[in-house]
Simulated scan of single mutants.
Amino acid sequence: MEIRFVEQDDRALAQLSQELDSFFFDLLGAVYLEYQPHNTLSGLAGGVVAYEAGEAVGCACWKPFDAVTAELKRVYVRPEQRRSGTARRMVAQIEQHAAASGCHRMVIETAKELDGAAALYLRQGYRPLPEGFGPYIGDSGSLCFEKEISDGTMR
């Protein structure tokens, strides 16, 4: 497996992001349309695409949330590649990139229906953020998490 950093206009990233949108629409129906404005690729600070045998199989990105916080976005792995460690490796790359860019904290929101995603974040050291953050504060359809990603030094 190879993980490549990409720009926000990367074709593979756009394709995988569209697949993720379709997945969420199939899962949540019209409710997903309320979340769609938060899931664009504009404003990304970093993104990765995972490749297996030359085929794009997953993506993950981050956007600045505030001066010291990054928001993990668009984490997706194609169904046939799930449970292979792909998501774990992509998230770790994104965390390192955000930390190197001066962020100290990472936040992520996912749908409450996605037990596997929640378990992934918990295994990677994220803590539940019951009150939510940003547009997800008080959103009963969302699960939010946070993680300290810096080494404790100020940048």
Rank of each mutant, 00 (worst) to 15 (best):
G102R: 06
T40P: 02
G141W: 05
A70W: 05
E148V: 11
P79C: 12
K63W: 05
G138T: 04
E19C: 11
S150C: 00
V48K: 14
I137G: 07
R155I: 11
C59W: 02
S22R: 14
I108C: 14
A53M: 12
T86E: 09
T86R: 11
F25L: 12
G54D: 06
S42E: 15
L72I: 13
G134W: 15
L120D: 01
Y136L: 04
A50M: 14
R105L: 10
Y51R: 01
I108Y: 04
G138Q: 10
L20W: 14
T40D: 09
I3T: 07
L13C: 07
I108L: 15
V31R: 10
A50K: 13
G116Q: 06
S17D: 12
C59I: 05
L120G: 02
F133A: 04
V57H: 09
F25N: 03
A119P: 00
G134R: 13
R82G: 07
G116D: 08
D66L: 00
F23T: 03
I108M: 15
S101D: 10
K73H: 03
F24P: 01
P130G: 00
R123V: 04
D9L: 02
V91E: 07
E34R: 14
A87N: 08
G58Y: 14
V77W: 15
F23Q: 03
E95M: 10
D151P: 01
E2L: 06
N39Q: 14
P64A: 07
E146R: 11
P37K: 14
G132E: 06
Y121I: 03
Y35M: 06
E55T: 14
E55Y: 10
E80T: 10
E52Q: 15
E19A: 14
A12W: 10
F23H: 12
P64C: 00
A12F: 12
D151G: 09
P37N: 12
L114W: 00
H104K: 14
C144L: 02
Q15S: 15
R82C: 10
R78M: 11
A119S: 00
L20Y: 15
G141S: 07
A50T: 06
K112N: 12
G134I: 09
T153M: 11
C103P: 07
V107P: 03
G152M: 01
G102M: 08
R82S: 08
G58R: 13
C103R: 06
D21G: 12
G132N: 06
F145P: 12
